[in-house]
Structure formats: C-alpha cells, structure tokens
C-alpha cells in the first residue's frame, strides 16, 4: 500500500516551528528544569512530526498533539534510568508531574504568556512600556516614577492599550484549549 508524501508542507512546518518552538521549550522546562534538555526534547518532537510527515488539521489538533508529545517525552526522560541515577529529581515527585492537572496548568500558563506577549508586542512603544510594568504588578504610581511620567499619562496609556488590545484578543489567536 502506497501513499505519497506531501513534501509541500515544508513552509507550513517552518511556520509552525517558528510559532511554537519557544513556548514548547518553556513548557518542557516546567517538567525537566533544564534548558538544554528542554530544547532537545522539543527538537525531537518536531523531528518526529517532520520525519513521519505528521500534519494534523486543524491547527488546534496539531498544537495539542505537540504539547502532549512534549509532555510524554519529558516524563519519559524523568523516568529514565539515566536521569534517576544521575540527577536528583528537582521538581517534586514524578506523580505530581504526571497528572493531567499539572499538564493543563502548564499549558494554560504557556499559552496565556504567549497571548499576553504577542498582544503587548503590538502596542506602540510608550504604551507597551506601561503595560509591561503593570503586568509585573507595579502600581500606577510606581510606573509613573519608573518611567518619569505623570500618573495621568500612565492611566491614559493604559486606556489606550486596552482599546488596542480588545480586537486582538478577539481574533488572531488560535488556541490549544478549545474545549475549555
């Protein structure tokens, strides 16, 4: 039985890689707590889908497939004899890491971070600065001091930001958790 591969998927693959490599690394990091290893795991997962010519449609399915693969690979690594004999488990016990709650929690953190990041990135520079600081829970007053601007300017910039962010949050993003 023969099925021909679709070799035209390269661009699509690159796009997907560009968008998801970093968030997936951060996600893997929450399991394995090692930067290099996180990159290796994510790269492996991409190689598998590339090699097997796995292309899942719609994108939502691909995303959850990738997250699940990264999770499984991370857990496999933590369970491996190599890891057990060479490293102490730094991140609590393996059972907690293996739960669905942990998986969903990290996925939400990863996804929200990316949404917030890309949303903020679209803002004009001044506006962006204000929002970035406010995300770190700085009060309006503290922001005003930090940026040497008036309290009123901070408030105006924030309002402007919210206005600009609204349409962005409505469209534009594809979510891994359509069921939530």
């Amino acid at each position: 039985m023969l099925y021909k591969n679709l070799s035209s998927d390269r661009n699509e693959y690159e796009e997907c890689f560009n968008e998801l490599f970093t968030p997936l690394c951060l996600f893997a990091y929450s399991y394995v707590r090692d930067g290099q290893l996180s990159k290796d795991i994510v790269q492996d997962v991409f190689m598998v889908i590339w090699k097997k010519k796995i292309f899942l449609k719609p994108e939502v399915v691909l995303k959850s497939y990738l997250y699940t693969s990264v999770k499984n690979k991370s857990l496999d690594y933590l369970k491996s004899k190599y890891h057990k004999t060479n490293c102490k488990l730094v991140n609590g016990n393996l059972e907690a890491l293996g739960t669905n709650d942990f998986f969903l929690r990290e996925m939400v953190v990863s996804e929200v971070s990316e949404i917030v990041r890309s949303a903020v990135k679209t803002l004009p520079p001044k506006c962006k600065k204000v929002i970035e600081l406010s995300l770190g829970e700085l009060s309006n007053k503290a922001i005003a001091e930090e940026l040497s601007i008036s309290l009123n300017t901070v408030k105006t910039q924030k309002r402007l930001a919210y206005k600009k962010l609204r349409p962005l949050l409505k469209e534009h993003f594809i979510f891994i958790l359509p069921f939530l």
Partner: peptide, 23 residues
C-alpha cells in the same frame, strides 16, 4: 528563559533542516 530558547531557535531549525531525520 524565553530569550535563551528564542536565541537557539534559529540553530535548532537549521539542525532540523539539515537532517530530515531526527535527533
């Protein structure tokens, strides 16, 4: 951490491209 990953993205992509097998 994000910056670290973002910086190695290009290399990771080049590596992926280089071999169509994984690694």
């Amino acid at each position: 951490l994000r910056n670290e990953f973002e910086n190695s993205k290009e290399r990771a992509w080049a590596e992926l491209r280089e071999r169509s097998r994984p690694t």
